[in-house]
Amino acid sequence: MEVIKISNKPELKAQATAWFSDKWGVPVDAYLESMADAASNPHGIPKWYLILDDSNTIIAGAGIIENDFHERKDLTPNLCALYVEPAYRGQGIARKLMDIAVKDTAAAGFERLYLITDHTQFYEKCGWNFYGMVKEDDGGEIRMYERVCQRGNTENT
């Protein structure tokens, strides 16, 4: 399955923003703004990725943004909005999205990629290390993970 960078296929932006908004409850406009920023700076952050099935329906996606709604603005960039449709889980799709996100983060000049999550075992199995607890913008605490990024070539999809 091919990982598509939305900045390389802007015609998918409307479909992608609706899909991400439906999965995460973040307004479509926030995704539109972030994807527009990604298109204007293809070598920097943010970045957005999709995987489509044979009928061009989104089955998975993820993004890289500066901050994923937590108080630690110094811990940047952040993997965000990673989601795989239930029928496609357990096939290595999430890991594929994470791997390209790590490569692109390194290519953008960052040494680490962070994420906040409650899905601890999954991310630990995928090579993420527990960083510590951070306070979310809404005041709650959540676990933060980090992953070291190695410089290397990225796919141009």
Results as ranks from 00 to 15, higher is better:
G44L: 04
E141M: 13
K96H: 10
Y88D: 12
I65W: 07
R95H: 13
K9S: 02
A62N: 11
E33L: 09
K135V: 10
E66I: 08
A36V: 11
D53E: 04
G25Y: 14
P86R: 12
G127K: 15
F20S: 00
A107K: 15
T117N: 03
N153K: 07
T120Q: 14
S55V: 02
A39W: 05
P77M: 12
P42V: 14
D118T: 14
T157I: 12
A87V: 01
R72I: 04
R151C: 03
N67K: 01
I142V: 14
L32T: 00
I59G: 04
V3N: 13
E33R: 08
P27L: 14
T157D: 02
D54H: 04
A18H: 05
H119I: 13
L12N: 00
G61D: 02
C126T: 07
K125G: 01
S40Q: 15
N56Y: 04
S21H: 12
N8D: 10
M35E: 05
K47R: 12
L113E: 05
A38G: 06
N56G: 00
A36I: 04
F130I: 09
D22L: 01
Q91P: 00
Q121F: 11
D54M: 07
S34G: 11
S7M: 05
D68M: 01
P10T: 08
K73W: 00
A81Y: 10
T76K: 04
V84S: 15
K125V: 01
R143V: 06
L97Q: 10
L52I: 01
M98G: 04
A94W: 03
E111D: 11
K135H: 04
C80H: 09
H70M: 06
K103G: 11
L50F: 01
